[in-house]
C-alpha cells in the first residue's frame, strides 16, 4: 500500500442522502439533501452560491450539479434532473444511501461585490437551483442589498421547484417575486407568459443593479435584449454556463468555451466576458 497524498482533488468524499424530495409532478426533478460522512469535512465545506459539485455513483460515474443550498444551511442540497447515466442512477437511490461528492468547484457569484445594489434574479425551468441558493443568501443578508426581485417561470405549475418556499417568499414584503407559467392552467391564478415577456412587464431598472440570469438557452436569448432595454450593460448581467466536463479542475479541457474553462473560470460569467468568447456553449 502506498501513501496517498492528502489532497487528491479527483477523489470524491462519501456523503449520505439524508432526505429526498421529489420536486415536480413529472418526477424528473429530485432534491438530494446530503451530509458528508466525515463530520469535520462537513463542517469545513464552504461554498458560495453559484458553485457546483460533482456527484458520483460508483460504477456509473460523476456529473456536475449546481449547489442549490445556501452556505448557511445545514445540509448540502442538489436538485437533479433525471437525464443521463449518472442522474438516472442517482434517482434510483433511496434515502440513507452514500454517494460521492467532490467540490465545491467553480467560481460562484461575486455576492460581496453586489452589496448595496439592487439584485434581479431571472430563472427559467430547473435552472433555478443555484439562484435559489443565491436568493436564500441574499435574504439572510437582506440589509446588505437594495431591492431584490425574482422572476421565475416554468412550463406549468407542476414544474415549479421548491413550492413551500415559494409560498413563504410570496408573503415577504422585502422581496418582489414574480412567478409565471407558459400557458394558462387550471388552478393557477398567477402570471402567465414566458420569462422574457414577464421581465419586460416588470421592467426592472438597470440603475445600480445586477441581473443574474439562469435558464434554457432560448429563454436567455430573448431575455438579454429586454435587460438591455431596461438599462443593464453587459457588465451588469451574470450568466451561468454549463458544459460537459470530467475533472472540474481545469485539466481535462472538455468544458472549454474558447479559452474559458467553465469548471474553473466559470460557471458564472458576465455577459460582457461572454461576448468576447466563441459561441460554444
Amino acid at each position: 500500500m502506498v501513501a496517498v497524498p492528502e489532497k487528491l482533488d479527483m477523489i470524491p468524499l462519501p456523503a449520505r442522502i439524508e432526505r429526498l424530495v421529489v420536486e415536480t409532478d413529472d418526477g424528473l426533478l429530485k432534491s438530494f439533501y446530503l451530509r458528508l460522512l466525515d463530520e469535520e469535512a462537513h463542517r469545513a465545506f464552504r461554498h458560495r452560491p453559484g458553485q457546483f459539485a460533482m456527484l458520483s455513483v460508483p460504477g456509473k460515474g460523476e456529473c456536475p450539479i449546481g449547489i442549490a443550498s445556501s452556505p448557511s444551511e445545514e445540509l448540502l442540497m442538489f436538485t437533479v434532473f433525471r437525464t443521463g447515466l449518472v442522474t438516472d442512477a442517482l434517482h434510483r437511490l433511496p434515502e440513507g444511501t452514500v454517494i460521492g461528492l467532490r467540490g465545491p468547484l467553480g467560481n460562484g457569484y461575486p455576492l460581496e461585490e453586489f452589496r448595496g445594489k439592487n439584485v434581479v434574479l431571472i430563472a427559467g425551468g430547473f435552472a433555478v437551483t443555484t439562484l435559489r441558493a443565491t436568493l436564500v443568501y441574499l435574504l439572510e443578508h437582506r440589509d446588505d442589498y437594495g431591492e431584490i426581485t425574482m422572476i421565475y417561470g416554468a412550463r406549468n405549475p407542476g414544474l415549479l421547484l421548491y413550492k413551500p418556499e415559494l409560498e413563504a417568499w410570496k408573503k415577504r414584503k422585502d422581496l418582489k417575486l414574480y412567478l409565471t407559467i407558459d400557458r394558462e392552467a387550471p388552478g393557477w391564478d398567477g402570471l402567465v407568459g414566458f420569462v422574457p415577456q414577464i421581465t419586460e412587464q416588470v421592467s426592472p431598472s438597470g440603475e445600480n443593479a445586477v441581473a443574474l440570469v439562469c435558464g434554457p438557452p432560448i429563454m436567455i436569448k430573448f431575455t438579454l435584449p429586454v435587460l438591455e432595454k431596461c438599462g443593464f450593460s453587459p457588465e451588469q448581467v451574470y450568466l451561468s454556463l454549463e458544459n460537459r466536463m470530467r475533472c472540474g479542475l481545469g485539466l481535462c479541457h472538455h468544458c472549454n468555451v474558447g479559452p474559458f474553462l467553465v469548471c474553473k473560470d466559470g460557471p458564472v460569467i458576465t455577459l460582457a466576458e461572454l461576448q468576447k468568447l466563441p459561441p460554444e456553449y
Binding site: V2, I11, P12, P14, P58, L93, V98
Partner: peptide
Amino acid sequence: EILSFEARPGAIPSPVFFE
C-alpha cells in the same frame, strides 16, 4: 486508475494512487 470500489450503490470507494 484513481479509484477502486465495489460496484453497488452506496459503496464507499478507495483512492488508488500509482507510485
